[in-house]
Amino acid sequence: MDWLDEQRANFEALGNFSDRILDGLITTVQLTVISGLLGFVIAVVLGLMAGSRSLWLRGPARVLIEFFRGISLLVLLFWLLYVLPLFWIKYDITLPAPQDNTFATATIALAINYGAYGAEAVRSALTSVPRGQWEATTALSMSWPHKMRRIIFPQAWALMIPSLTNLWVHLLKGSAIVSIVPEVNEFTFELDNLRRPTDIWFSHAFIGLATYFVLALILTLGMQALEARAKHKLGRGPSLWEILSPDPRPTPPDAASAAPPRTKAATTRPRAGKETE
């Protein structure tokens, strides 16, 4: 009975803290989504630059990618929070300073760090698009934006999604370190507050780790759906609607040979990790 009473007390404490825990969860989701999208933009820009033939584009991109991949996330975070403000003070910069909005600073740090990893995924996906496709766009004398938007990127997109999914889960997990940044009360920070009235098993394992796991699963499933859609658009698999429909319609013979998206993603995972880490 002791144990039950203890759990009742734990849940009571959780009830008292529910507002803050929920706020923290929302902050973590915001961090993950905003810096994920920002990081994706960085990844595409740097990836396209790194994949280009011009040295003037490739050189700077390589330096930036290796630099931000090489220094650790926490170092980048500290550098933005402690060192960058000095430039503001010294040179009287009137733009908003990094320490005024720590949430934005943390978002940018996450986006830059994981964007640099993503750039490598984007670049390797671009090089995996068959040579003939590139040559065909040249033969049809397509403009660069046209061929990227219509021919190359849609094919590379389907290839890069598994790596980007892994990176996004990494970003979600990495966002827990933002708990040390002042004034950003994200989920891990609030868990530490919950630890005091409850016990560590309840706060960190039962609530904390489980919630992060569910978030990561949702992220993975969402990205797998996106991958299925990207493949269907290229004519290489059933549509999302067909996968989700309760009564499976007979799939056309050429689509039947394609593996379902779940196993596809699972088989590409080890390779994807190799490319992005």
């Binding site: 889960v169 997990k173 966002s175 827990a176 891990t188 560590i200 960190h204 904390g208 992060y212």
Partner: peptide
């Protein structure tokens, strides 16, 4: 999968306080 998909920071804190 559970260990892989949860943050190292929370795992560290969990074991540290345990």
């Amino acid at each position: 999968n559970f260990i892989r998909m949860t943050p190292i920071v929370v795992q560290l804190l969990f074991l540290f306080w345990s």
